[in-house]
Design a protein around this nucleic acid. Sequence first.
DNA 1: ACCTGAACACCGTTCAAGT
DNA 2: ACCTGAACACCGTTCAAGT
Lengths: 180, 180
Amino acid sequence: MRTVYTSGPLKRERVLETALAVAEREGFEQLSMRLLARELGVSTMAVYRHVTNKDDLLDGLVERLLGELEIPEQSLPWEQRLRWLAREVRALAHRRPEVFGLLLRRRAVGEDATRARQAALRALRDAGLESKAAERMERLLSTVVMGFALSEATGRFEGIDVEDEFERALELLTRLVATQ
Amino acid sequence: MRTVYTSGPLKRERVLETALAVAEREGFEQLSMRLLARELGVSTMAVYRHVTNKDDLLDGLVERLLGELEIPEQSLPWEQRLRWLAREVRALAHRRPEVFGLLLRRRAVGEDATRARQAALRALRDAGLESKAAERMERLLSTVVMGFALSEATGRFEGIDVEDEFERALELLTRLVATQ
DNA sequence: ACCTGAACACCGTTCAAGT
DNA sequence: ACCTGAACACCGTTCAAGT
């Protein structure tokens, strides 16, 4: 009834990948340990060998999503790096509308979580902000970017050209950074 | 084992109120139709007379939460009205940390949903923004305000003085509105 | 008209048992 | 070492039955 991924032994990597696929295909609420196991062609409890419980599975998904963000080259001007990051997040929300919300519900702790944040902080420092101000601005920017992306993914801004809206918001905020 | 609310007949109002209390006390994930019924001192299916299903229950909670927002007097200067609204949202997130996230996950459709939005739009028009610009700014502001409030409720900004941070962000954005 | 209990098709997770 | 099936304590919801 379902596609069963049969490539090699069961690994955490494949568990997460399949969980992501199931969530996007069936809807996030439908993702269960049992359905995931069925999809992997394995007993429910076999999944627990690669994931300590469902919470750990969700943490793994968050980490995987963050790992999909491409970090801009340091050589680019700071404005372009900020825009790059913002668009990466927006693209992620587009690609994974069902699971994107996880990023705003769960605290990201792993290494991938900080990569994007560090890149944003570097860009803001390069824009001339001192350390504390850069951190504050990063929190403001990430809130806006994540919030917009989520709003689009959940349909809160239906009927609105979010592409355009998002670019304008970025424009405004970048100007705000420049005048800090 | 649990407090049973015994005041009068079962009404939608009391169902929602109790659901809110249960969610905040036991955690949002623990809120179930069965536990809610137990709490109301009634059979599970009796709850279904006041709520068509769990989805409808959650929609009801969203509506109730939005109804808790106090709208500022029109006589206040526009900056103060915006600040008022922002603080109301932040206070709501503080009061209902467990259920606040619902507001960002579900589309609000009822009347209470638009009250706050209309008040913000009026303030922005009074600030001199033309109609389209006011709508765009309202979306930006609401995203920031809701995003910050959620981040605080979920602990994303742990160790940070969100009170201070929030005021600074508002300050920045208000200046942005003034210079539009 | 309003409430009930049993039943159905699901969950996450523990644990003893199999290879 | 790795996987399994049965079991436990839960879900949301349908439906026939009670008052």
